[in-house]
Design a protein around this nucleic acid. Structure first.
Length: 422
RNA sequence: GGAGAGAUGGCAGAGUGGUCGAAUGCGGUAGUCUUGAAAACUAUUGUCCUUCACGGGACCGGGGGUUCGAAUCCCUCUCUCUCCGCCA
C-alpha cells in the first residue's frame, strides 16, 4: 500500500511514475485524495462530539458521587442527541474509511525512476550476460527426456498421485534436489542470513500483508475449510515474521533465508513452454528476505543481485540479468531484476530468480517500522529467490549432459556424494 | 473433538462500572554522585489518528452490544494453558 501522506504531498510525481505501468491512475488517486480530505473533516467533527460527551460523562460521575441525582439526570438528557450524532458520524466515517482502503489496494507500487517503459518481457532491459558451461554434444536432449532416461524425475507418477505439475523426484534426482537446497541454504548462511523454516500455509492476514490478497488470490491454493492458503513462496510467511513489529534501528538489516515448497495454481498455462520442469504446481525454492533502512534499500538490492549471480557462477551456468520494464513489474515492486539461466537443449532463457525492492509498500501493510529521532519510519523490504530449483535443475541436466551421463557441478559434489548421473 | 481457566504497556503483575492510558516491580533512556564503573538517588519511558500550534480523539487479544460512562458487565471470534479423548 502506498502512504496516504505521499499521495497528499507528491501526487503528481506518483501519477506520472505510475504511467510506466501502462495504466493511468489519475482518477483513482483523485478519488483517494478527495476522500482523504473528507475523512479528516468528519474525523475532526466526530472527535469534537466525543470530547463533549466525555466531558459530560465525567460531570455526571462527579454529580452522582455528590448525590446530586437531579442535576445528573438533567445532564443525561443532553447526552442523548450527542450520542445519536456520534453514532451516525462514526458509521459514515467507517464507510468512508473502507472505501478509501478498497481504493488504496488497487494502486500498485510506484516504479523507480530507472524502470524502463514497456508492455511485456520483450521490453525488459538486459543488464549483463555471462557465460557458463554448456555441453558440446551435437544433439542435446531436453531435460524431460534426460529425466526419463536416467529415471530421476517421474512426471507421470506425480500425475497419478496428485496431478500434472507435481513431479516425483527419485534416486539421484531426489538427492540432487536435496543437495541444491543445502548448498543454497549454506551459502546464504555464509552471507549472514538467518535460516528459518516457516509454516507452509498462511492465513489471509499474512497473504494480504505481502500483497497476494486481494489481487492474486486465484494463484494460491485455498484451504476453505480452515481459511488458509498454501504458500506460493516463502516470501509470504517469512516477511510476515515482521508484521506488526516496531524493530530497533540497530537490528537493521534483518536478513532471513528459508527453504520451502511453493504451491501455485498457474491456472490457464499449458503447452510446450510449460513442459517438464519449466512450470509446476509444486516446486522447491530458497528465498532470501531483507528488512533495511530506507536509505540503504537500493544498495541492498544490488548486493542481493550480485549474491545470486555468485551462486549461478559457482554452478557455472550461463545466465543473464534483466531489469523488468513497467509492464512486467509485479504489483508490489518498485524495481525488479530477474536472473535467467540458459537452458541449452531448449535454447531458452529460464527465469530462476526475481529480486525486488518493495520500498515501503509491503511495510505499510505489514505495519513494519523502526524508531528514528523519536519518529516511526516504515522500513523497506526486499526479497529474492536464491534460488528456485526446478529450472536450475533443468538447466544443469541440459547443459551438463555428456555421452557418459550428467556431470554434477563441482560445488554440489560434496552435497550429493556422487559426481555423475548415469 | 469434549470440559474448564485465562489473554492488561518491552517483561512480570495489580486493577470487577466513574479523574484508569492504567498501581507496583523489573527493564530502557537521561541526569546527580564517582577518577571510572557498580550501587543509590532524581527525572523520564506505549502505539496510532488529527491540528501550524494549544489541544482533541482512539487503543487493556479481535469484533459487536449494554450504559450518561466499560480494562471492568453481556455476546461472539481468535489464541494460550490444564484435564480427557485421539495421534506422528
Amino acid at each position: 500500500m502506498l502512504s496516504i501522506q505521499d499521495l497528499r504531498h507528491k501526487k503528481e510525481e506518483i501519477i506520472s511514475l505510475l504511467q510506466k505501468r501502462n495504466h493511468d491512475f489519475t482518477a483513482v488517486i483523485n478519488q483517494v485524495t478527495d476522500l482523504d480530505v473528507a475523512i479528516r473533516k468528519h474525523k475532526a467533527q466526530l472527535d469534537q462530539i466525543l470530547a463533549e460527551s466525555n466531558q459530560l460523562a465525567k460531570q455526571i460521575g462527579q454529580l452522582f458521587s455528590q448525590a446530586k441525582q437531579e442535576e445528573a439526570e438533567l445532564l443525561k438528557k443532553k447526552t442523548v442527541s450527542l450520542k445519536e450524532e456520534s453514532r451516525a458520524l462514526s458509521q459514515d466515517l467507517e464507510a468512508k474509511n473502507n472505501e478509501l482502503k478498497n481504493l488504496m489496494v488497487t494502486i500498485p507500487n510506484v516504479p523507480n525512476q530507472i524502470v524502463p517503459a514497456g508492455n511485456s518481457d520483450a521490453d525488459n532491459q538486459i543488464i549483463s550476460e555471462n557465460k557458463g558451461f554448456i555441453s558440446d554434444l551435437e544433439s542435446k536432449k531436453p531435460h524431460w527426456e534426460l529425466a526419463e532416461q536416467y529415471q530421476i524425475i517421474d512426471f507421470e507418477l506425480g500425475a497419478k498421485i496428485t496431478g500434472a505439475g507435481f513431479p516425483v523426484y527419485q534416486g539421484k534426482g531426489a538427492k540432487l534436489q536435496r543437495a541444491l537446497i543445502n548448498f543454497f541454504l549454506d551459502r546464504a548462511a555464509q552471507e549472514g542470513y538467518l535460516e528459518v523454516l516457516p509454516p507452509h500455509m498462511v492465513n489471509s492476514a499474512s497473504a494480504f500483508a505481502t500483497g497476494q490478497l486481494p489481487d492474486k488470490d486465484g494463484q494460491m491454493y485455498h484451504v476453505t475449510e480452515d481459511e488458509l492458503f498454501l504458500i506460493p513462496t516463502a516470501e509470504v510467511p517469512v516477511t510476515n515474521i515482521f508484521r506488526d513489529c516496531i524493530v530497533k534501528p540497530s537490528d537493521l538489516p534483518l536478513k532471513r533465508v528459508a527453504y520451502s515448497p511453493c504451491f501455485r495454481r498457474e491456472a490457464g498455462s499449458y503447452g510446450k513452454h510449460v513442459r517438464g520442469l519449466n512450470r509446476l504446481h509444486q516446486f522447491d525454492k530458497v528465498e532470501i528476505v531483507q528488512v533495511v533502512h530506507p536509505s540503504k534499500s537500493y544498495q541492498t538490492l544490488e548486493q542481493m543481485v550480485s549474491y545470486v549471480c555468485e551462486l549461478l557462477k559457482e554452478l557455472s551456468l550461463p545466465y543473464r540479468v534483466v531489469r523488468l520494464c513497467g509492464g512486467d513489474l509485479s504489483f508490489t515492486s518498485a524495481l525488479t531484476y530477474d536472473l535467467e539461466v540458459y537452458s541449452s537443449a531448449q535454447d531458452r532463457w529460464l527465469e530462476v530468480s526475481s529480486i525486488s525492492n518493495f520500498e515501503a509498500y509491503q511495510s505499510h501493510r505489514l505495519k513494519l517500522r523502526f524508531k528514528e529521532d523519536q519518529a516511526s519510519v516504515f522500513a523497506h523490504t526486499l526479497n529474492g529467490s536464491a534460488l528456485a530449483l526446478p529450472r536450475i535443475l533443468a538447466s544443469i541436466l541440459e547443459n551438463y549432459q555428456t555421452k557418459e551421463g550428467i556431470i554434477i557441478p563441482d560445488c554440489l559434489q560434496s552435497y550429493t556424494g556422487f559426481d555423475k548421473i548415469n
